[in-house]
Design a protein around this nucleic acid. Sequence first.
DNA 1: CTTGATGCAAAGGATTTGCACAAAT
DNA 2: ATTTGTGCAAATCCTTTGCATCAAG
Lengths: 150, 150
Amino acid sequence: MSNKNKDIEYIRNQLTREGYKFSYQRHQIVKAIYGNAVHINVDEIYNKVKDKDVSRTTLYRNLRLLEEVGVLKKINISNINYYELEKAGSQKFHVHAKCVKCNKIIDISEGEISESLNGLMEKLNKNQKITVSSTSVVLSGICKECELKI
Amino acid sequence: MSNKNKDIEYIRNQLTREGYKFSYQRHQIVKAIYGNAVHINVDEIYNKVKDKDVSRTTLYRNLRLLEEVGVLKKINISNINYYELEKAGSQKFHVHAKCVKCNKIIDISEGEISESLNGLMEKLNKNQKITVSSTSVVLSGICKECELKI
DNA sequence: CTTGATGCAAAGGATTTGCACAAAT
DNA sequence: ATTTGTGCAAATCCTTTGCATCAAG
């Protein structure tokens, strides 16, 4: 079974386990998000599924459901929500960076950073008032391209 | 001069420097945010200033302006925007944690964490495609109180 | 069959904008 | 005087909801 099929099977199971059906529309939505590199916003998802019998209402309802079921993560950057599937073998931490000049969003996926964050989370779980289960890190700055333009 | 006056003076200067006035309403808004512990949302600010001749429109306009001028930071947690003043001597990094059970928001201000984040930022500036000037870290998990209730 | 899922249109909440008036330099 | 700031009401954007119909298990 391909990775993709395995991942989608996992999502189906999570839904079924909680008594939800894996409808045609849900399948379309999951595939649309899956097909994307890293993060995708509602409009981008909608553009991918609107010709496949998925309404905006259904899209919103299911984004919320997939989040509740724990297979989808929402990240808010500059008041826009982006979505990412939580795949089986996927990195535990995602760091997103946003260029304040061109508004481009960059996904940062370096092992080193992941390690730093892991250590950070361990410290928090030991010393602080909360047991952390998920993180969202958004950095703002100026990307290399925009820096050259100044 | 008190810390508070110094901080407010700094904000006035930032505004003046960019050609904006330090109007009565702006002063009220700044004081309302200043008076608060850590983060405060629009409604909370509005409740503090509505009896002082500040309309919602003016509030929104000035939150945006203060952000642009670089003295106010917006943090989005669960689709609600919170605001914090960037004071002169204030910590460079803020970590916010949200309890997924009771929705309480906790401000985490431990030196150790700050150090980890500093290191993280240095690595990013060296290796990555962006020069980071500001960070937002939001953790989700279960707070100690809610954990005991389970 | 029976319950959950969908689409439409309408409602909702948060934020922004057009315009005329008021305040500051 | 001229520019910047304000308030109101209306507009806009994103998301949710009520209701009748449809489809999955």
